[in-house]
Design a protein around this nucleic acid. Sequence first.
DNA 1: TCCATATTGATAATCATTCCTAATTACATT
DNA 2: AATGTAATTAGGAATGATTATCAATATGGA
Lengths: 128, 128
Amino acid sequence: MIINMERTTSQKEIIFKFLEKTESHPSAEEVYAGVKKKKPRISRATVYRNLKNLKNKGRIQEIPAEVSHYDGNISSHAHFLCQKCGRIFDVFEICQGCGILRKKKVKVGEINKFKLYLYGYCRNCKRK
Amino acid sequence: MIINMERTTSQKEIIFKFLEKTESHPSAEEVYAGVKKKKPRISRATVYRNLKNLKNKGRIQEIPAEVSHYDGNISSHAHFLCQKCGRIFDVFEICQGCGILRKKKVKVGEINKFKLYLYGYCRNCKRK
DNA sequence: TCCATATTGATAATCATTCCTAATTACATT
DNA sequence: AATGTAATTAGGAATGATTATCAATATGGA
Ligand SMILES: [Mn+2]
Ligand SMILES: [Mn+2]
Ligand SMILES: [Zn+2]
Ligand SMILES: [Zn+2]
């Protein structure tokens, strides 16, 4: 028999579908509240566990902040974080070639500052 | 007499100087370990408190991740986070005009993905 | 249907960060 | 230089998000 075979569960599907169909970039707690409507007995731990797994599998992305938020849209896009209400908006006006913003004044609001994080393997970690 | 007047303390200065002279983007815990060499009786709470204050005053910047890291360099630059060793490198090859990366292949390593966060006030929060 | 094991639910544990407060310190004023 | 007072600290407790534990449950191949 095959070991370490991933199984489909209703919890997994509900969590992923919830993220897939929202654009609000919810926190883990908000995902928990949302999926409880469909599955009232779901555990908070199950939500955290699956969010982590989905992220590690690259099916969703995490937005690290004071509290992590999650995004079912893994296409290349930026995020606008409102410094007052805390909402997170998508920004798709980025160049697909170089991966970067085309114009500084985007429709979502006035940008005060930005943070750009690049991920990869440094020169030391690359060899081997 | 003047109320709410900020006072200079040795703790404050040591913490800021520690960040000013390093390029390693240390976590709060690493700052604590570092400044303890100069001031062994310093409290962990003092380090966290001052990191927060310095950040709110815009004298340092925070790099949100699983654990927050801090940067004494507040000039516009990006960060390369190694997905293996976790080290954080500066990337200064960004266009000052639009605020963004010039070439995808920077010297620090190969970029697998990026995250761009824009901060400001959304259209709702802007009025008033 | 049966069985091995992946996954869940419930709760305890962990860990980073913040809060609390009495003691200390900076500094304006004398 | 000495005093008064509010800002700040040290140390430890509290908080809150996330992770670990583990018995019970559910999935899916045989
Ligand atoms: Mn998004
Ligand atoms: Mn930096
Ligand atoms: Zn807003
Ligand atoms: Zn590395």
